[in-house]
């Protein structure tokens, strides 16, 4: 196994573990105020210090990990499963259905993903559900595009024609020969998308359009830390580092997957 995959998986283990534990237990209650202990630097009692309301930063990071990762996982699952269905249909039916779907997809792709998410949040309202829906919809066009182009390129392979010659139905060929061979590029994309969503969610929360305080996410913790960065730098360092680690992990794992699924390597 390659080094980048190992590092990526270790980070996933670390953050995923924190998120899982954070769902059940945190050292302190993440929203418990302690006005006597505001902006305390890291110490033995509070490993990562406390914030402007005296809340334990580590506990909030763990709870934030639960929220951020849950949002990202749900979003990716929704966007990828919807995108796979639409992309498969579009790539296999062709004709006017395909052209119509592609016109809408192209129009939506003319907006940067994050901007589309921003607009959708305005419509759907901020908060967990709003973010998940907005981000799923915002990244859906990209998924459709990738699935469709994967389907179109696999369709050209001779083994798909061979399946036709054998007498298999279109649907059978689609699900047994085309879809499984599209999973490689789709899984690479889903991995990078996980990173995009983590980043977009934290950016939206940072702008105040995401999950509302006091419930912690990495993005809104970073945003709340901004006025204090002169006095309490640890408040900014910790959540930012978590976001960066999550992105690093998705990039490393994405690279490893891409290397593994590289068609030239399969052929060689």
């Amino acid at each position: 196994m390659k080094l980048n995959l190992i590092i990526g998986l270790l980070i996933v283990l670390l953050l995923g573990g924190a998120a899982l534990i954070g769902a059940a237990w945190t050292p302190y209650h993440p929203m418990q105020l302690d006005m006597l202990n505001r902006l305390a630097p890291p110490s033995f009692g509070h490993w990562l210090g406390t914030d402007e309301f005296g809340r334990d930063v580590l506990s909030r990071l763990m709870a934030g990990a639960t929220t951020s990762i849950a949002i990202a996982v749900t979003t990716v699952l929704m966007a990828v499963s919807a995108g796979m269905i639409i992309g498969l249909v579009s790539g296999s039916v062709r004709g006017w259905t395909d052209r119509g779907l592609m016109a809408v997809t192209d129009a939506l792709l003319a907006f940067p993903g994050i901007l589309l998410a921003l607009a959708l949040i305005v419509i759907l309202g901020a908060g967990r559900t709003g973010i998940i829906l907005a981000l799923s919809l915002a990244y859906l066009p990209a998924v459709i595009r990738i699935v469709r182009s994967a389907v179109l390129s696999i369709r050209e392979k001779e083994y798909v024609e061979a399946s036709q010659v054998i007498g298999n139905s279109q649907a059978y060929t689609m699900f047994v020969h085309i879809l499984p061979n599209c999973l490689a590029p789709i899984s690479v994309m889903a991995t990078s998308m996980f990173g995009w969503v983590i980043l977009a969610e934290s950016a939206l929360s940072f702008l105040g359009l995401g999950v509302a305080p006091p419930a912690p996410t990495w993005g809104n913790m970073l945003s709340a830390s901004q006025p204090y960065f002169e006095r309490a730098l640890w408040l900014s360092l910790a959540p930012g580092a978590c976001i960066a680690l999550a992105l690093l992990a998705t990039n490393l794992i994405g690279d490893a997957l891409r290397d593994r699924f590289d068609p030239r390597r399969l052929q060689a």
């Binding site: 392979k157 001779e158 083994y159 024609e161 061979a162 399946s163 054998i166 007498g167 298999n168 020969h177 499984p180 061979n181 399969l266 052929q267």
Partner: peptide, 24 residues
């Protein structure tokens, strides 16, 4: 087919490839 590299589904085992036409 001409190209033995692209005429077999890379994810299918040889036995299953040869068995598939018998479905019908």
């Amino acid at each position: 087919f001409q190209d033995p590299y692209s005429s077999l589904d890379p994810r299918q085992r040889i036995g299953s490839i040869v068995h598939e036409p018998l479905r019908h």
